[in-house]
Design a binder for these strands. Structure first.
Lengths: 342, 342
DNA sequence: CTGAAAGCGCTTACAG
DNA sequence: CTGAAAGCGCTTACAG
């Protein structure tokens, strides 16, 4: 029982013109339409409360004006922010968006991508899990419009938009050093699935140690599954020489760290400096406020849409590239030894 | 350039059967199909990497297996949680979801609903703004499947799922009283658009004052636009008799309150007790941890989907109702005078 | 300036 | 057990 079963034929009859002419009207091709005809059609549409059926239109035009977005894990606040930007930008361009959350499971991701293709989306923006090389490859081969976000997939030639992760870690380490913290550890979620940002952030940590001429201690690199992370943090602080500061690789590792700190009465800032990647919503109101390395989520989302829409534009087919965006640091109290006064 | 331009005709030719038979296969109607035919079709589908075009299917079947969700304001964490539940539940039932955010603007809401109808969604779940009575009414009249969430619309006969807001405030007030706070104020976002939960929460505050035999002070009721809220909070604390505790009506008012508190060095718990409606993600890691009144977001979303899907089921057309869900309190340190020790 | 006709890719009653 | 045909609601080249 749809709200409106009026079709273009009804309107045509009511206005005493042909379907073709009504279609011209709907698509605003008034070039050759008599004023009087136009008015009649307008009136008929109003009277019948007609609304065109977009499914029929899509079938004929072979375009749904819909983009599928498949996000590896929507729990990261960064993902949410990028998605908002993507939606806004797509909306501006009269595209609808269908969001799917793969929950970090390649099988789910695959199912979603196939469903979206079945629904004839015009393009895909994917935060890829790392488990569907074959599918990505076939999308690339068939020249289907696709853009990756947050993670690239090696051996693939697809437009990708992501953070300069190495720079992000260097920013964090440099800032902590400048604030008097020397022994710096990194904490991030599991590397099991070879997720690009995590890998690059660990790599960035290593190169930062070298660049700033600090000893590289493997026991300062904690890349753990969420379920065992608190335990790992515990071990970190039981080391003979516990770290003076922590770089948290993302919001999930941050959450675990904050829980640990709260339970063990550790004072962030005074006892241990903290910088975390990603500007989370509560960074400013946390006590003490958290120094973050912000990703330009809005720009990243916008760029992804831009790259995708570009593919629909005629023949200008650029060579796919990886686009790196610069992080920025938002300095608050958590990285200040005298900061946590509250 | 879709990934796969193979159609049912191609498969039919390849398998040397008719389109009808392929269609039977796709829809798993094997009743009268010879084993051998089935195998031939299966093979053809694999070889051609055929994927059915759902747009064509939808046109024929007059059903898109898609539900539109229009949320008044996605910035409320409660909305996000409910939406996740809705998506999960719909997914289980093989429906896709299209989410739209009305940004509290009735005009946007209207545009989205119309777009969704044009895209032939099978039903709508709406967190209604309060500005489209006419549209809601016409949806109701045309018997289009729709469920409201979080807010009801008066004079309308539509299934609605929402919190027992009065109970929520009573829980908060009672808890604060039990913990020794006497003068309790309520802080919430603007009532300008007559948004149901806010109205009911203010109303709940009034009835709580009566129930617990407390004097009702109008200057303890702060219902303000976000842009002037901090100022309003300031005024609250400059009163001759400032409140000892605050009930925050939602996560946005909470944010403003926490900012104020942080800037003015007020100690939550010791100086002013706090209970906030909605279980926000950082409640547990805030310093001090925040006592919240949780909405059963998951159940609310699930119920909304259930009610909607029920409408597709044959003839069992129940009379539309309002379903109220019970809040629960999650006690943490922000409502404890001796709590904020950290 | 407007209409008749074909076709987008499916599904489904019906005939055989 | 399988196929031919009609039709879902649009759009568009083409004819007039």
């Amino acid at each position: 029982m749809p709200i409106n079963k009026t079709t273009i034929s009804d309107v045509a009859k009511h206005a005493r013109v042909s379907k073709s002419t009504v279609s011209q009207f709907i698509n605003e091709r008034f070039d050759y339409m008599r004023e009087e005809t136009r008015e009649r059609i307008e009136k008929a549409i109003k009277e019948l409360n007609y609304q065109p059926n977009n499914v029929a239109r899509s079938l004929k035009l072979k375009s749904t004006a819909t983009i599928g977005v498949v996000v590896a894990n929507i729990l990261h606040s960064f993902s949410t922010q990028v998605i908002r930007a993507i939606e806004d930008k797509l909306n501006e361009n009269d595209f609808s968006t269908i969001i799917c959350n793969a929950d970090d499971e390649p099988a789910k991701e695959k199912k979603y991508i196939e469903t979206l293709l079945g629904r004839q989306v015009d393009g895909l923006i994917v935060f890829p899990t790392s488990g569907n090389q074959g599918l990505y490859k076939s999308l690339e081969d068939s020249n289907f419009p696709i853009v990756f976000v947050d993670r690239y997939v090696s051996d693939l030639n697809v437009d990708t938009v992501l953070l300069d992760n190495e720079k992000a870690i260097h920013l964090a380490v440099e800032h902590l050093l400048n604030n008097g913290y020397k022994d710096i550890a990194i904490l991030t979620t599991s590397l099991e699935n070879a997720v690009v940002p995590r890998l690059e952030r660990i790599q960035g940590y290593r190169s930062a140690m070298e660049r700033f001429e600090l000893p590289l201690r493997e026991d300062y690199i904690k890349s753990l599954d969420l379920s065992v992370m608190k335990n790992g943090i515990s071990k970190l602080f039981q080391l003979e020489k516990p770290p003076q500061a922590i770089v948290s690789g993302n919001d999930l590792s941050l959450m675990e760290f904050l829980k640990y700190v709260s339970e063990h009465n550790v004072k962030i800032g005074a006892d241990v400096g903290l910088v975390t990647i990603d500007e989370i919503p509560y960074a400013g109101i946390h006590n003490p406020p958290l120094t973050t390395i912000a990703q330009p989520a809005f720009e990243i989302g916008e760029k992804a849409v831009e790259l995708l829409l570009h593919k629909f534009d005629s023949n200008k087919h650029n060579q796919p590239k990886i686009y790196r965006f610069d992080p920025s640091i938002i300095v608050r109290k958590s990285s200040e030894k005298a900061g946590a006064k509250l």
